[in-house]
Simulated scan of single mutants.
Amino acid sequence: MTEVPLPLWPTFEAFLAGTPMREIRHWCSRKAKRANRERLLSGRPTERISTEDVVSVLTAACGRCSYCGSLAVQAAPMHPETRKPMPWGHIGRRIGSLDHIVARIDGGSNSVNNLCWSCHWCNTWPSERIPGATDHGAIRLASI
């Protein structure tokens, strides 16, 4: 089992204070670009998501996953030298992800009303959307 490292940010406020807005916008821009791509089974979306749309979804959720409530404001880990993706399962509930409430393949649109903030774990495995989950590096509020 992989040891779970300490979180980069314990709260959304710490994330905002420790991350320049240009970096947040760049991160959100990559998420918008990915959401706007043509997909094999759902084609090209009729509506395009902007960077501002993703920033608004992130801030409205205060960086918390809409499904499990974990603070999800980290990027997926990359190898520092090769910049290739590294295993992320041990911190999957900390990685921020933009999710379509109704998947595009099921007829969902790219409209802001169909978007929510999600941790990468819940976005990847809908069957593991457990409110209050504490596995896979989840960062919980003290009151939860």
Score class of each variant (00 low, 15 high):
116 C>Q: 15
16 L>M: 15
43 G>R: 09
99 D>M: 09
71 L>W: 04
25 R>I: 10
20 P>R: 12
7 P>Q: 12
141 L>M: 11
101 I>L: 12
61 A>W: 03
72 A>E: 13
101 I>E: 12
104 R>H: 11
40 L>H: 03
68 C>H: 02
56 S>T: 14
65 C>Y: 09
7 P>R: 11
24 I>R: 06
99 D>G: 06
15 F>L: 10
37 R>Q: 10
62 C>G: 01
18 G>M: 10
88 W>Q: 09
79 H>D: 15
20 P>S: 08
55 V>E: 13
110 N>E: 13
92 G>D: 08
38 E>T: 10
131 P>A: 04
7 P>L: 12
7 P>E: 13
80 P>H: 03
132 G>C: 01
125 W>E: 04
131 P>F: 02
41 L>F: 07
71 L>R: 05
99 D>W: 07
70 S>D: 06
85 P>L: 12
124 T>R: 02
111 S>K: 14
134 T>Q: 02
50 S>W: 01
7 P>A: 12
15 F>P: 13
27 W>G: 03
84 K>N: 10
88 W>G: 08
56 S>Q: 14
97 S>L: 07
138 A>S: 03
39 R>Q: 03
25 R>V: 08
51 T>I: 07
140 R>L: 12
36 N>R: 08
125 W>R: 04
103 A>N: 14
117 W>P: 06
72 A>K: 11
106 D>E: 15
50 S>C: 06
109 S>E: 13
104 R>W: 08
81 E>G: 02
127 S>I: 00
98 L>S: 13
91 I>C: 06
143 S>N: 03
52 E>N: 11
9 W>N: 15
55 V>T: 12
53 D>A: 10
69 G>D: 02
96 G>V: 07
78 M>D: 04
101 I>V: 15
25 R>D: 15
55 V>W: 09
74 Q>P: 01
97 S>H: 14
134 T>F: 00
30 R>Y: 05
9 W>K: 10
44 R>C: 00
46 T>Y: 09
8 L>D: 07
115 L>D: 10
15 F>N: 10
87 P>I: 07
40 L>T: 05
114 N>M: 06
38 E>H: 03
126 P>Q: 03
39 R>M: 03
142 A>L: 07
118 S>L: 04
29 S>Q: 12
79 H>R: 07
105 I>Y: 04
97 S>W: 06
100 H>S: 15
58 L>N: 05
135 D>G: 00
89 G>F: 09
109 S>L: 14
50 S>F: 01
29 S>W: 02
